[in-house]
Design a binder for these strands. Structure first.
Lengths: 198, 198
DNA sequence: CGGGTACTGACACGATCGTGTCAGTAGCGT
DNA sequence: ACGCTACTGACACGATCGTGTCAGTACCCG
């Protein structure tokens, strides 16, 4: 019987971590079991035993990627009082623009796009989940008065869009200075817009 | 000898169009020749003859998708004098948010992400190309005074980011009213920011 | 009519895929 | 010592993949 993801053994998490590192550099789209198993010093037999089948492994990898994302998001929540969307966006962008996170974010983009095209299977709901995750955490960063208004929803949607769009640009061009300047310009716009009483 | 894309025969463009429609609904990631050929009433033999190999077909499909995008962009250029980034963004968003374009945009997202993960092969440069295409057309929409400044570059980068990010949200959630409201809010921000002498 | 160009069908080849089967081995609690 | 659980190796199966080979058919130009 395959181990469930709710009851991961030591060996399972160990191999998952190795497979995750492999996926970061090779992508998920044309990943296949035999090359993966060989690269991480295992075998297809073991992967099948631990994850049930390829879809199980894929789901575990996607969850693993999502864990890394959620860790960042939790840091944003750890403020005693809401820091505002602009400050939150600033912090998030610093994380998104870091060179070290480039492979993770490429993987994220791949999973996101794939879940749009193929709404069934192991990718199911990935894009939707991340959008919701981020919108929720941005909501937690908003002042209480703004958070529950329609205006507040639109406001964080816009903030998320800027971050995501800037990320796409950065991943394609690697032009960090230009894209970061654009994000900063938006932050200035948001802050002045707020001051003007939008 | 395979036909080049520079010298397409009638049959080639006909089958390419059929394959393109197939790709719009089935995605490119796990497309394979035999199911595709059967779906469009052809055979793998013919596809190989006309496009050389699978990569050739894939390249032709990506180019076909890009054609549709460039057609929109050319419409934006057809103004006698620059219409400004805000007006351009408004027009582009109307196009992006149209229900009919959803499959094309899903395909676009898939190709974009794939070209990030796998920089070689037929996907090579797709993401980079579209970023450049869009930035160039946005540049043409800017007033001449703004266009060549560093500030102008940052400004259109930001505009593109909002549109791309909003598109990602829309594709994942389908919540057109919320996302469109966010885009409109940004348009208002841009216009008021400009009025204030940014 | 004759020949070249454009296209198509039928089939086979080797590679690779996910997965199943059968047999182990190592360690640990009793 | 024993059995139970956790894990692993070797190998085979059928399916599907991209592609190559050999043969056509249809049609236009001379």
């Amino acid at each position: 019987m395959p181990r469930s993801t709710a009851n991961p053994s030591a060996r399972q998490t160990e191999l998952l971590e190795a497979a995750y590192q492999y996926a970061l550099t090779h992508g998920l789209a044309d990943m296949s079991l035999r090359p993966l198993a060989e690269a991480i010093g295992s075998s297809t037999r073991v992967l099948m035993f631990l994850f049930g089948n390829k879809d199980g492994l894929l789901r575990a990898l996607l969850q693993r990627a999502r864990t890394e994302e959620l860790a960042l998001l939790d840091n944003l929540r750890r403020h005693e009082q809401p820091i505002g969307l602009a400050a939150a966006a600033e912090g998030v962008w610093a994380w998104l623009a870091a060179d070290d996170h480039r492979p993770l974010l490429r993987l994220w983009a791949e999973a996101y796009a794939r879940s749009l095209v193929e709404p069934d299977g192991p990718w199911a709901g990935f894009a939707r989940s991340t959008v919701d995750d981020w919108l929720n955490v941005l909501a937690d960063c908003q002042p209480r008065a703004e958070r529950d208004t329609e205006e507040g929803t639109v406001h964080r949607t816009l903030t998320l869009a800027v971050l995501r769009g800037a990320l796409l640009d950065l991943l394609a061009t690697g032009d960090e200075s230009r894209v970061t300047a654009a994000v900063n310009q938006q932050l200035a716009l948001l802050r002045s817009g707020k001051r003007a009483g939008d």
